[in-house]
Every structure is written in structure tokens, then in C-alpha cells.
Design a protein around this nucleic acid. Structure first.
Lengths: 214, 214
DNA sequence: AGTCCGGTGGCAGAGTCCTGCCAAAGCGAG
DNA sequence: CTCGCTTTGGCAGGACTCTGCCACCGGACT
């Protein structure tokens, strides 16, 4: 791995140790956008510090809404908040991104072809551009506390609703098994779709699956 | 890895070299059930022999219908057939399975928690039971040639239909972009759902995603 | 020519899903 | 208890999806 320019890393084996080191030595800022459950699972060991983040370092986390429907991830998000991180939830989905001290940026590629590619960028202009994009996403995102204030019930029901949906059940029977009226069940589904940023149920299925909620 | 009993292997790194070796030394039979695009991508290097399978070895492949909607995979399936493998398509989805010489069975676990677990079984009774289950699945499955005889058009359209669905488009607009009438577009979606074994569009979304078609 | 046949597209009716509206029920504050 | 707020569930109407039916078209075969 070089120390300037752009380096592409394939797969996580190489990236994560390096990331852990970078996290540990950050001086002013760590900003992350997390988009998929998978990357969190892999990252957690590297990115959960034992103690609070040092006061000089601003830690910002952007967690895609759908992810917080996973109870375990929601717990993780709150742990991060407790440790001193600012956690926000963007409206739209965001590309997986890591920013450190406004000097290094890591962008994740798609997972379509083999191991995921990660571009590590140290070119100042590019990093600045990425940082600015991150900032706008950050600005329009809602603080965690605000976001999940009125979604506690949804989070409680989401797993069962998702299960029913994934089973291919009709609303009628699904509502009965979940123990809701059809009207309320559909309300939950609508909220779920909103949280997943989906406009059709097909899309919701795709999103739910790619977030690992099913 | 032991030579008898049941061994659980986590992740593919350890399994695939071993599998390749086992494939190369099979004496009478290699039977595989493939359920997910992912495992194929990882396996292909190990399991595509340069030449035809040796005549004494019966090679049976059970490929989940949805997988064949992926053009690359369909090509792979035909390559296998050309090399002398019997390829069939089951009605229902099957658990990822490998059987070698009726003496060793490999069963894949779920991918939910971290790296996928693979159980390598050499207990004769268990292997026999697994083999018998495989045989029934095999018996009810349709030969590849028969299956995709009348599905060539679907395979050609599937990517674009899936794309439209994933974009959250309504049938009206989706049909127009794909260049079909609404009626025919819905026919395609219905066929797609049948191929994916889905009863609702949500389910189809989940399946399509987990097969890596989106 | 005629006939058959697979695919297409329109139409209709049924089934399913979505959502605004409103009354009823729960629930905490005053 | 009463008020106000939130959630629930029923209802209705509309939007969307699904599918059977049938007419139409183009190609193959006799």
C-alpha cells in the first residue's frame, strides 16, 4: 500500500488491519458512512474501541436507515453514540465511505465481481471533494436519537413483518400471524418500505436482503 | 480435517482446495447441488476441469432454476453439460450439497452469521441418507436441455426486467422501457417469479438479490 | 392456398395492495 | 374525571398486479 495517490485494495483482509491502525492514529476526525450490514460485521472488531473516543477527535457515523432495523446493529449504533460518536441517519442511501483527518478517504466499490474493491485516496483535492460530499450528506441526515425516537415499535415488529413478507404471505394472513389488523400491518409495511427507501415491495425485498435483514 | 466423522469448516479458504482435490480423485460419482451464485463464482476455478470428465465417473449437477437466469451461469452450466455432466433443474430450491463417490458429503450451512459453515460428512449412514435425498431431488428435476428449451427468450429479457423491477418502476413504465406491452411484461414477471420460486414480488426481490441477479 | 402453432397484445374481472379519513380505544397530564 | 395526544382498526376508493380469454400476426408445414 502506497502512502500517496490512489490505491485499490481488493477484499477486506488487507484493508481492515490498515483501517484499524488509521483509526487508532486519527488526530482530528473519523467519518464513516456505512451502507451494508456485511461491512459492519467485518468491521466491528476493528472499529469498536474499548474506551471513549479521544476528545480531540470528532467521530461521525452515517448509518443507512434500513440497517437500524436490525436490532443488533441498532445496539451497536447506540454503543458508538455512547462512546462519543455523532451518529446520523441519511434520507438516501450513501456509498460506503471512510474519511480520516480530511487527509485520507476510503471508498468502497461494488460487490458484484468477486471481492469488494476499496479505493484508498490520499490526493488532497480528491479527499476534499469527497469530504464535501460527505458533509452535505451529513447535513441533511437526522441525528440518531431523533430518527429512532418514534420508530421503537417499528424496530420491534420489523423482524416479524419481514419474515412474513419473505415467506410470501398475503397481508391478510401475515397480519393475523403477526397479531395486527390488516390496516396496521400495511402501515408497518409502508414504514418499512420508507425506511428501506423502496417504492415497491420488490425493491423492498431486494434492499432487505442486501442489508442482511433476511 | 479428519478422515472420518463430521467436520465443520468455516469459510471457503479451507474447503475449496480440499474439494478440488476430492473432485480430481473421485472414482465413481460427483453430485453437486448449487443454490447460490456466490458459491459458483468461488467454485468455478476449482470445479471446471480442462478436459471431459473421465468416463467412469458420473457427474450430476443440480442447478437452481433462478441461477440459470444469469447468462454467465447458463453458459457455465452448458459447459459442464458439454464436458459430460448431467445437468438438471429442480422445481424447488435445494440445499447446497456435494456428494463424492457416495462416501463423502458436504453440506453448506447458512450465510447469516459470518463465514459460511460447511459440514463434511463421512459417516456412511448419514452419507447414504443424504445421497438418497439428493436422488429424489434429482429424480424430480428436469434435464437442462428440456428446462431452458422454451426459456431462451426469458433469459434474454430477465436482466432488463429485473433491472426495471429493482428500480421500483411500475409495470406501465417498465414495460415501455423494456419495449413490451404491459401484458407481455407481466407475463415475463410471472415467469421470472416462477423461476425464482417466489409467490410475491417481495419474495422475488429477496430471491433475486440472494442469487446475485441484482 | 389452407392449417397449425407459438408468441403478442388488448381487455376484463378478480385479487391484492395502498392510503386518506374517521371513529374508537388507550394513556398520560393536569 | 376530562382533555389532549397517539395509536389502532374499519371502511372506502383508488391504484396496482395477476390472469384467463380471445383476436391477431408471422412463420412453418402439407
Amino acid at each position: 500500500m502506497t502512502t500517496s495517490g490512489i490505491t485499490v485494495v481488493r477484499g477486506e483482509q488487507e484493508l481492515y488491519p490498515w483501517l484499524a491502525h488509521a483509526f487508532a492514529h486519527a488526530r482530528t476526525e473519523i467519518s464513516c458512512a456505512v451502507d451494508q450490514l456485511f461491512s459492519w460485521v467485518v468491521t466491528r472488531t476493528a472499529s469498536v474501541p474499548a474506551t471513549r473516543f479521544p476528545p480531540g477527535v470528532r467521530v461521525r457515523k452515517l448509518y443507512r436507515a434500513g440497517l437500524l432495523l436490525d436490532p443488533a446493529f441498532a445496539g451497536y449504533a447506540h454503543t458508538m453514540a455512547d462512546l462519543g460518536a455523532e451518529v446520523r441517519v441519511p434520507e438516501r442511501e450513501v456509498n460506503e465511505t471512510v474519511l480520516i483527518d480530511r487527509r485520507v478517504a476510503v471508498l468502497a466499490g461494488d460487490t458484484a465481481h468477486g471481492p469488494r474493491g476499496y479505493s484508498v485516496v490520499t490526493v488532497p483535492e480528491v479527499v476534499q471533494g469527497i469530504a464535501s460530499l460527505f458533509d452535505t450528506a451529513w447535513a441533511t441526515a437526522a441525528p440518531l436519537a431523533l430518527w429512532d425516537a418514534d420508530r421503537t415499535d417499528l424496530r420491534a415488529l420489523a423482524p416479524r413483518v419481514l419474515e412474513a413478507l419473505a415467506a410470501g404471505a398475503k397481508d391478510e394472513t401475515a397480519a393475523r400471524t403477526v397479531g395486527l389488523s390488516v390496516r396496521t400491518y400495511r402501515r408497518r409495511v409502508a414504514e418499512l418500505m420508507a425506511a428501506l427507501g423502496a417504492e415497491t415491495r420488490f425493491q423492498a425485498g431486494v434492499r432487505a436482503r442486501e442489508l442482511g435483514l433476511i
